[in-house]
């Protein structure tokens, strides 16, 4: 969910990792980079190869289907969060 939310803005693997770390979510390279491919194969992300700083990079962003799924995930997460808050 964090990856999908962060990819509302376009990122490539390394900048995405840095952005997540800045927000307090440490995620291993061997987890994040393959995850991007899996999310793309599920249709939740779209990607393209582009050159930036003399290096070809694969940029990812949320697809239309991914936006819908993210909205549902956020709603579910919010509901669970509210319930836990009530219990605590």
């Amino acid at each position: 969910m964090a990856v999908l939310a962060q990819l509302r803005q376009e990122h490539y693997g390394y900048t995405l990792r840095k952005a997540l770390v800045r927000r307090g979510l440490e995620i291993e390279e061997s987890t994040l980079y393959p995850l991007l491919r899996r999310l793309e194969s599920q249709g939740l992300l779209v990607s393209e190869w582009r050159e930036e700083d003399k290096r070809k990079k694969r940029f990812y962003k949320l697809s239309a289907e991914g936006s819908g799924i993210l909205a549902r995930l956020l709603q579910e997460w919010q509901t669970i969060n509210d319930s836990i808050d009530n219990i605590l």
């Binding site: 490539y12 390394y14 290096r55």
Partner: peptide, 13 residues
């Protein structure tokens, strides 16, 4: 394809 992406990310890191 996979190695090119991994290389770009790790080299920049």
């Amino acid at each position: 394809d996979l190695l090119a992406e991994l290389r770009a990310n790790l080299e920049e890191q």
